Computed example of a mutant assay.
Amino acid sequence: MKKIVFAGIVTLAGFLTAKAQCTTVNKLSENFDSWKEINKCWTAQAGKAMLYAGDKKIIFYSMNDPRENMYLVTPKVKAGSYTLTLDVSDNGGETTLELFSVDNPSDTKSFASIAKASKITGDKKTYNISLKKDTRLGFKVLLNGVHQAVYLDNLSLQPKK
């Protein structure tokens, strides 16, 4: 009986520890080098395509499903003004990136655009954003061709001083 109670306490502590690691942040600095899969504090929605961590970056891959809406969502970020920078490139073709504030990662109706979709050109992207409330950031990638890929790396979200 003591073993069962102890196992229950250890399991509950594990759940509480995992939840505590996904707290609201006031900055992000991620190069994705150590990711073997999407971090549990982030959310990936790939639809019928693929969105995964690999080759020390995040890869959005269309497979045979072009025009699929694919989203990568950060942990919750504290309200405030920020500078967001990231490296984003593709393997050719027409691709776009749009930035959202996200209330509920599992409900795309809660996504509100904060930076219009822009063509991915291989250049570093910089955004100045202002969050009125604690929210997550969502990156929507749109691929227009079969076997297209977009690569996201070196993401930095820093508070403005």
Rank of each mutant, 00 (worst) to 15 (best):
A79T: 06
I129F: 01
S110N: 01
M70K: 07
S81L: 03
L152C: 02
I120C: 11
Y127W: 11
N128K: 14
A44G: 09
N91F: 06
W35Y: 05
S62N: 10
A79G: 09
T108A: 14
N39V: 02
Y151F: 13
L155T: 00
P105T: 08
L84S: 07
V146K: 12
S113A: 05
D123E: 09
T23W: 06
L84F: 09
V10H: 05
K19T: 09
D134P: 07
T95D: 10
G14R: 07
L137W: 05
H147C: 04
T43K: 13
K36H: 10
T126V: 10
I4E: 13
P66S: 10
I9V: 13
D55G: 04
K160I: 15
N39D: 15
F6V: 08
K19V: 12
I38F: 08
F6G: 04
C22H: 08
I58G: 07
N154C: 01
G93K: 10
L155Y: 00
K76C: 04
S130C: 02
D103A: 11
V5R: 14
K48D: 08
A44K: 13
T126G: 09
C22S: 13
L72W: 01
V102D: 01
F60T: 03
T74H: 05
S118K: 12
Y52E: 10
L51G: 03
V146M: 12
V77T: 03
E37N: 15
A149L: 05
D65W: 15
N154T: 03
K36Y: 11
R67Y: 10
I114D: 01
K19A: 13
Q21S: 10
T121P: 05
G138P: 04
T11H: 05
T126E: 15
A53P: 05
L142H: 07
V10S: 01
A53G: 04
S89N: 08
Y52I: 05
A46K: 15
K132W: 03
K3C: 08
A149D: 06
V102C: 06
L131A: 06
T43H: 12
K140T: 01
K78W: 00
E30L: 00
L16N: 10
L157K: 03
L86R: 09
A49V: 03
K119H: 14
T11G: 05
V141R: 06
K133C: 03
I59G: 00
T23F: 12
G122V: 07
